[in-house]
Computed example of a mutant assay.
Amino acid sequence: MTPEPATESGRESRRTGPLVTLTRRVENLSDTQYAYLLLSPVFVLLGIVALYPLLRTFELSLFETSINQASQTFVGFDNYVELFTGEKDRWLPGTSTFLPTSLTFDAMISSALVVTLLFAVVAVSFETVIGLGQALVLDQDFPGRRWVRAAIIIPWAVPIVIQGMIFFLMFHPEIGFLVQPLADLGLLAERNTLNDPASALFIITVADIWKTSAFMALLILAGLQSIDRNLYDVAKVAGATRWQQFKLITFPLILPTIGIAVLFRTVQAMRIYGLIDAVAGCEVVPSLSCMVVTTFLTRQGTSAAIAFVTAAIIGVAVTAIIYQQYKEGI
């Protein structure tokens, strides 16, 4: 008879142990709380990988490093003030500026901020439209569809340096076969093409559209493949035209996928550097990432300030896209 109290005591201790208490608390969580619990390792990882470098960049932006990097001086927000007032423009390559000095075309095309935003808007817009068209074609059943799907990935697989060299040769004023036809249309400068800011920006935009439209097409195609085909059968029975099927079925169902694709491409477009450097150079076509790279060795505080402003702009753009995409759920 004596072992029973001990057994009951052991059972009671196992029922009230810390692990049992933690398990019960987890079981009592709501679905939303349980989802956040499962995502907590991801949040911790993002905090280490993304948040810490961002905070470190902001800390560096509060200091001014000497040219020989022998000392650092705390200057607070002076780097940001001088950046937006134009006093830091003398440290940028060529005639580049951070903000446009006037509303003229030449001043706009020399501004790193304007060039970055203009490139992101134009490139992502065309890539989305072209990618959507390619995805709609690839979603159809036709002979050789697998080969076409494989071929469309080729531009996306080309390294940036090789891509830049291809377009450099295609639009070189002496040997490029596309310079004269596009110059006759007024799209390019006939001479000194790659050193003309407007022409070089046009070439870089076309090169980026050529490469990353395939990325958009693949993402959108994944959304198209997830649509229930029975919906189209019902629409055909109801007498819906192809345009009505696209308007009422296809587009609403792939809109979340398009939003995710636009989100990814916007972040990448705001960070463009390699393609500019390979085709024309940061002195001809300035961008925010170009300014970060070219000022880092001599002015780390200025470089960090530009990098933090770039991250802030990307954060605002990402938030706006997410809000626009899911505002009904919010």
Results as ranks from 00 to 15, higher is better:
V148S: 07
Q69L: 14
L288V: 03
L46V: 12
L39E: 09
L201N: 05
Q300A: 13
R271N: 12
R149Q: 15
T97R: 10
M1A: 13
L178R: 09
T21C: 04
S111N: 02
K327D: 09
L118Y: 13
Q245D: 04
Y34V: 03
K236L: 13
V148N: 04
G259V: 07
M216G: 01
R145Y: 10
Q300C: 10
V262M: 15
E64N: 15
V292E: 00
P252R: 08
F105C: 00
S9V: 07
S13T: 12
V267H: 04
R25L: 07
F167R: 00
P286K: 05
Q245M: 08
D141C: 02
G164Q: 08
P5C: 00
S66C: 09
E4A: 13
V148G: 09
Q69F: 14
D184V: 13
A238R: 03
L218N: 12
C290T: 02
D89M: 07
G259S: 15
R24W: 11
I276C: 05
K88H: 11
R90I: 12
S30C: 06
V122R: 02
F84S: 01
A320W: 06
V122F: 04
G17H: 09
T32C: 03
L297Q: 15
L37H: 07
V267L: 14
I272W: 05
G47N: 02
I160G: 00
V262F: 11
F126R: 03
F264K: 05
T104K: 09
N192T: 04
T65P: 00
D228Q: 08
F58W: 03
F215M: 02
L221W: 11
E87A: 12
A217P: 01
I321P: 02
